[in-house]
Design a protein around this nucleic acid. Structure first.
Lengths: 155, 155
DNA sequence: CATATTATATTAACATGTTAATTGTTGTTG
DNA sequence: CAACAACAATTAACATGTTAATATAATATG
């Protein structure tokens, strides 16, 4: 082989994982009081932002695999965090929306989440924070087609 | 509340997750031929790099939770990818090392892994790649204590 | 209209993530 | 030495990641 084993300390995947772990730690702490998992939080956040949407779009926006969403939706429906309805025009499709209990939880934690998000922005500075989001976006450039231009960050 | 719900499209955790997903996709493809998971690949990579080590250090270096490593080690030992021995000086501790079969798999894929790593470096350019690794490191600055200064990246 | 094809969702099976409880070992303190 | 505390590893229980197989609904094709 032409390459000896290089150090894992400069591995991009591992750096991404470590960074995510650091960022999620305070968020997990915040969420522990709500009984929501990170994934459930993302689902509710997306639904609160987008309104009712089909499960395929929801899974993509919330960064979840479809089978995971299927299971989560059953649980979250039982807890009345979301509602599930069939699309009357295409009964294969499922429409999911946030329910009042879900909205309540989101509303009660948005401020705390925003504070955490700002703490990371402050940790590295506004300019570098934007650079980081830009570079991360370029890594997944041809993979997904996210062309949003919003400027406010959150968790 | 003082904050309305901000867009998930500028969320740092989600950007980190999407970036990681993009980076890992080709690596997963490469690994599918070996029967190794990402996690098992990381364990073998760290062991090949560090030599025999105690499970606590291994879990930290490979970014795994301890219970996950316990289960994985049993599987990987059965497949003779690693060896497990008790520390004779402290029989609570376990020492794990890579076995010949594990080394063989690593060796057979190091070049492919290096090629994938380089493709991402090329995708955003050398300078921005270093900037990205730097910024990611600063996010987890006070969280872990990685002070390595190696320069070659890999997956 | 019957069949095949495609799309959507669910289910299955297993690995891993995650937290908490449990077991075994070492160290400490009386 | 005995009891206790601290540490390391395992196990348990449940959620999620992941891939493959299956079921159901819509569409195309003859």
């Amino acid at each position: 082989m032409t390459n000896s084993l290089p150090p894992t300390t400069r591995s991009l995947p591992i750096a991404l994982m470590r960074a995510r772990e650091s960022v999620m730690a305070p968020i997990r702490d915040m969420l522990s009081e709500t009984g929501l998992s990170e994934q459930q939080w993302r689902v509710l956040r997306v639904l609160a932002e987008q309104g009712e949407m089909d499960s395929h779009s929801l899974a993509e926006r919330a960064c979840l695999l479809f089978p995971s969403l299927t299971r989560m939706a059953a649980t979250m429906n039982a807890k009345e965090l979301i509602t599930q309805t069939r699309d009357p025009n295409d009964r294969r499709r499922q429409l999911i929306a946030i329910a009042p209990a879900g909205l309540t939880i989101i509303a009660s934690r948005v401020e705390a989440a925003s504070t955490i998000a700002k703490s990371f922005r402050n940790k590295i500075g506004d300019e570098d924070f934007e650079t980081l989001l830009d570079l991360l976006g370029r890594l997944s450039a041809d993979t997904d087609t996210d062309t949003d231009t919003d400027t406010e960050e959150t968790v």
